[in-house]
Amino acid sequence: MSKVGTLEELVDLVKPGMSISFGGFAHSLTPLAFVRELIRRDIRDLELIGIAEAWAADMLAGAGSLRKIVFSNFMFEGFGLCRNFSRVIETGAVEFEDYSHFALASRFSAAGLGLPFATVRSLLGSDLAGSDDGVQRVRHVDFTSPFGDERVMLLPAASPDVVVIHGHRGDEHGNVQILGATAVIEEQARAGKTVIATVEQFVDSAEIRATPNHTVVPGLLVSHIAEVPYGAHPTGMFRLYDADYDHIRQYAEASRDPAAFAAYLADVTTGDHQDYLARLGVRRLLNLRVDPHFGYHLERTESGWRA
């Protein structure tokens, strides 16, 4: 069976109540066309096991799609807090578990390796896991190493029902190539029960095989793949297009107020991804082109170029 599908077919795989995790870090690499389609379908009651995908977390929180958030850190780099995310925590609308970055990555790693639990020390000595009064903030077991009297903490492996990633190039076998920093995508992909990939471009498998060092997630992990150009917008894809900072500013502004954010969501989820791109327009997309030397967008000024 072919792994290739449309964005819509891939989103069909996500059912209410599932746990889900997304690729992405800061203003890059996030499968936001997929997230917009999830919101358009109004799929709810999701448990986000999120590690760095601030954009996915904030949009889904603002859309009311989440029941629970398991996470380490979400923030809009350069723009402050993720306000929708903060709001659902502050109002108690959504359950949450706080982890350190490494502790959560270790839970993904354990799942990816087929281990029952991760052995970590990251949560020792803080209030993150629980406190001495016996409250368990996250599920954990204090443990003494069998090789001495060293104190460690055991955390259960984390295996999301669905992991969604966005890459630069892919092929019909599900191989996904990503350029630049990849954050925790490899650990997430290995941990997922079902891994779904969207990519900027499908290329011939021979082309993938000719550049195997760019293959971050091999096809054996990926069950479904779709070609979605500009699928990370308004986040960027290194060497292909930069983050759309004008759009990000508008988003950050809208996210201060639930009504304004609802209007934003209504706008970006009207029609399908092609309609979304058409509304953005050719010039806006061209303005995101990157400089071939620097790999990110440069602004031309009277005296030269500015990053």
């Binding site: 471009q201 150009p229 060497r239 050719v282 010039r283």
Partner: peptide, 22 residues
Amino acid sequence: HDAFLQKVGVDRLLAITTKGAL
């Protein structure tokens, strides 16, 4: 020219653009 490209449209431009360049 910008107005021309906008009238041609994103879909049409994406359809002719070469893929696979990294």
